[in-house]
Amino acid sequence: MNKYEVTFNKVNKILEWFIIIIFGLLVLDVLFQVFSRYLLGTSFTWTEEFARFSLIWMTIIGAAYLNAKREHLSMDFLYQKLSLTNKRKASIVIEIFIFLFALIVMVIGGINLVYTTLHLDQLSGTLRIPLGYVYAVLPFSGFLIISFSVYHISKIYSNKNIC
């Protein structure tokens, strides 16, 4: 195992634990919301916003994690009918499209969104945190997806059996 594979595996393990922690906090938040509403007779407004932001972060970081594992949603009916050589070519083209999407939409668009919301001092409704911090997950996950795409392309080139 080379140093890139070791780094790749460590980053995946960190992402995995980060998603588990976010999910755990989301479950605790929703349980607290239900407990406070039905047993205490009062509702805390911050729990709904925290749950929404947790779900956003878990989903977008989860997309990067699934991209790393190459377990994202795909329709591979035509892909399975291709020869090994054409599968390799198709895999490279797919990774290039994923790379471009992550670069243009998630990194460039995400940085623009973060900058704009921080520059305008937009705060969340109840937690009163800058929305730029919530949106920072977009360029972060975009950079991860770009890195994973480069890693996958290098693996496809170096190993003729991987598609």
Rank of each mutant, 00 (worst) to 15 (best):
Y65C: 06
L123E: 08
Y65P: 05
Y151G: 05
F97A: 09
Y65N: 01
S124E: 02
I98K: 13
W57Y: 08
N12F: 13
L25Y: 10
K81P: 07
W46Y: 10
G109K: 00
G41L: 04
F97Q: 08
E16F: 15
S149T: 03
L118D: 01
S141C: 04
K155T: 10
F35H: 01
K87S: 06
V107L: 01
F8K: 03
G41P: 03
P139G: 02
N2S: 05
F18V: 15
R52E: 01
Q33E: 11
Y65L: 04
I21P: 00
S74C: 13
R52Q: 04
A90N: 11
I96S: 06
Y135R: 04
K160R: 14
F101Y: 12
F143P: 05
D29C: 01
P130N: 09
T47G: 03
K81T: 09
I146A: 04
F148V: 00
F35D: 04
M75I: 15
H152V: 04
L82W: 04
G24Y: 10
D76E: 11
V34D: 02
N159W: 09
T126K: 11
N67Y: 11
F140V: 09
Q80N: 15
K3A: 12
V34W: 03
T47I: 03
I108L: 11
S124G: 01
V34S: 03
I145Q: 00
T85E: 14
W46G: 02
I60S: 02
I145L: 02
I94A: 14
T85A: 15
T117N: 08
K13D: 13
V6R: 15
I20K: 15
T59L: 04
F32C: 11
S141E: 01
I108A: 07
A64R: 01
R128N: 14
H72E: 10
L123D: 08
A51L: 00
P130L: 01
E48I: 05
I145P: 01
L118V: 02
N2C: 01
I153E: 06
D29A: 00
S154I: 14
E16R: 14
I56S: 04
I108V: 13
V137F: 03
A63H: 06
K155G: 07
N12V: 10
Y115H: 15
L131E: 07
R70L: 15
M106S: 07
L120K: 12
F97K: 07
E71Q: 13
A68L: 06
I146F: 05
F140T: 11
F32G: 11
L84Y: 13
Y115S: 15
S83C: 03
E48C: 02
W46F: 10
L131T: 09
S74R: 14
L28G: 10
K89M: 07
S74F: 13
Q80E: 14
K160E: 15
D29S: 06
G132W: 01
V107F: 07
G24N: 10
K87G: 07
K81A: 10
I19R: 03
N9G: 09
I94R: 13
G62P: 02
S83I: 06
I21F: 10
I146E: 01
L39P: 04
Q122T: 11
